[in-house]
Simulated scan of single mutants.
Amino acid sequence: MKSGYLYVLIHPSDPALYKVGMTTRHPEERLVEHNTKYSEYAGQIVKETGQKWELKTYIAVPDTNWAETVFWGATGFGNIPYRRGIEVERMEWKCVQAGLEAVKSAGVRRPPKQLPDYVYAYTASVKKRLEGRGITLIGHVKSRISGRNNFQCSNGHVWRTIPNNVAEGEGCPQCGMGQRTPEEIRQAAKSGVLFLLTHPDQPGLVKIGLTYRTLEECDAESNWDGWQVHRYRNVDEPVLAESLIWELLGHPLPNDREPISIDLHIAEQAFRDLHGRLVSEIASAEKAKE
Rank of each mutant, 00 (worst) to 15 (best):
G192H: 08
G139P: 03
Q97G: 01
A188K: 15
K128E: 13
V108H: 04
C95I: 02
V126R: 10
G85I: 05
L197P: 07
Q174C: 00
P163D: 13
C175P: 03
K190P: 00
N165S: 07
Q114C: 00
Y122S: 10
G169S: 03
F151A: 03
S143C: 06
T123H: 09
H140D: 14
D117W: 10
H199M: 01
R129W: 07
L100F: 04
S154N: 12
L196V: 09
R160L: 04
R133P: 01
V88H: 03
Q202H: 08
N165A: 03
I145M: 11
I86T: 10
A106R: 06
H157I: 07
R110L: 07
S125G: 13
H157S: 06
Y118F: 12
I80S: 06
L194E: 03
H157F: 03
I135A: 05
S105I: 13
A189Q: 11
L130S: 11
G156C: 05
K113P: 01
Y82M: 06
G192P: 06
Y122C: 08
G204M: 05
G204L: 01
C175R: 04
N150A: 02
W159S: 09
P111K: 14
E184K: 15
S143M: 08
T161R: 08
W93F: 05
R148P: 00
R160Q: 14
I185V: 15
G192I: 06
S191Q: 14
E87D: 10
G85D: 08
T123N: 12
E92Y: 04
P200A: 09
N150H: 03
W159K: 09
S105Q: 11
D201M: 11
P182V: 14
